[in-house]
Write a protein that binds this DNA or RNA. Structure first.
Lengths: 233, 233
DNA sequence: GCAAAAGTGTTGTCCTTACACCCATGC
DNA sequence: GCATGGGTGTAAGGACAACACTTTTGC
């Protein structure tokens, strides 16, 4: 087999546009929310779509996703993870566009975060019906991904304020997973992990007995390099 | 904000080539293997690379990966899963090429599988040093992905013959995970799952006491729709 | 009979689950 | 004082980890 020249080879390849779409989850009012923008395409007038943009020449795809986040929310240093690609040839009405979906979690009440663009809104995940493009499918895939990830990693804390009560934490898990959990066992579970810092502070302005406030001990968690082996299916 | 025309918009996007690269794992001689091909690029002369090809116009990316598998191994209906994209702008010496990595598992001794191309070889995963492109990084990512997946899903059986002994199964897990497991506990674990069919057959031609042969009960496994909730990190 | 691997049980520990009562606060 | 949610303990069952000896076969 004759050896090939890389540039000639790549020149012969079909080329297509690649975009990133960010599924940005938040949590408010005991509901899982997602940040959406009104589609600016004629065909999808009035429908909501994920926050996305095209990947530039010489831009890594992860970098494009962080750029979208920064441009839309003004925040960098946010949790972001690649989920998977969506590539149906007709998924975009304007031609062939492959998209890479990213999942992101952020605290909806974060001070430095201002939604200036009034075409941008938080939507309750459970109430979304139709969306532009295949974004509904992407959203559902990312929600399932989140349900799995949140059980294996301390991701949920990215959706909560710095200081939170155990009730808020439990509400969040219940909202993401769509189940009800036993309060005592939930608290015992987190107590046994020893990864919550008791701040010796109390909730304010609640119409009932205030709960204690906690922080997640990321530092301690990151020191744990345990490699877990457990066949289970 | 004025509405946009989809075709004009997509026409303005930068375009790039997309490839798929398949990390095809096999198991033989108590070692985890990966199927590699000699690079046909001048720059990487002599180095090994993953099996890949460019994604065609109007071809879904998953379909491209299945096509690569079929072209190289003559097999369809094989386990295949998308892992993630690799997009460093300079990862391909011939220009901008984004690749989507896929992971695939197949039985190395499958009868209908013939490696005709003598540039194609099975390599022990642990003995691979340098590879073409960023394929070493892709391989490592896929290996980690496999280590996780094999603990949560009955994937390992795709690497074994239809009929296998518990010793073979355990050797496979040990090879993938890079650990030693207690034989008694391993057998108890699989016994308690009740997902192995005892074939009442014995190994043949082994230089020691032969073991019983089993099949995995995919039918029973697929009927189990349990949704597992268990926070653990 | 020897080498090599198959096959098997028990015990302690830990994790998970199910479940009910009193407490602190705002109104 | 009443409504609301905060906070706690226990007992039973199941899963996991550690551990050693006997059995079967090929040579």
């Amino acid at each position: 087999m004759p050896l090939k020249n890389g540039e000639q080879l790549v020149a012969s390849y079909p080329k297509m546009a690649i975009t990133v779409d960010c599924v940005i989850f938040g949590f408010d009012d005991n509901e899982l929310k997602v940040l959406l923008i009104r589609s600016d395409l004629e065909k999808y007038q009035g429908l909501w779509s994920l926050l996305g943009d095209v990947v530039k020449d010489n831009e890594e795809i992860d970098a494009a996703a962080y750029r979208v986040l920064d441009q839309r929310t003004g925040m960098s240093d946010i949790y972001l993870d690649q989920v998977r690609s969506f590539s149906h040839p007709n998924r975009h009405p304007g031609g062939r566009v492959v998209t890479i979906a990213y999942c992101s979690l952020l605290n909806i009440k974060h001070h430095s975060f201002n939604i200036i663009d009034n075409e941008l809104h938080w939507h309750s995940v459970s109430s979304i019906s139709e969306m532009a493009f295949d974004h509904k499918e992407i959203l559902e895939t990312c929600h399932q991904w989140l349900q799995k990830m949140v059980q294996e990693n301390p991701l949920a804390f990215n959706l909560l304020p710095d200081k939170f009560s155990l009730r808020e934490l439990q509400n969040l898990y219940e909202a993401i997973l769509g189940v009800e959990l036993d309060r005592r066992n939930f608290r015992k579970k987190f107590a046994s992990m020893k990864l919550l810092i008791d701040l010796d502070e109390m909730e304010q302005d609640v119409p009932h007995r205030p709960g204690k406030l906690y922080q997640f001990n990321f530092e301690k968690y990151n020191k744990n390099t345990r490699k877990w082996i457990g066949i289970d299916f």
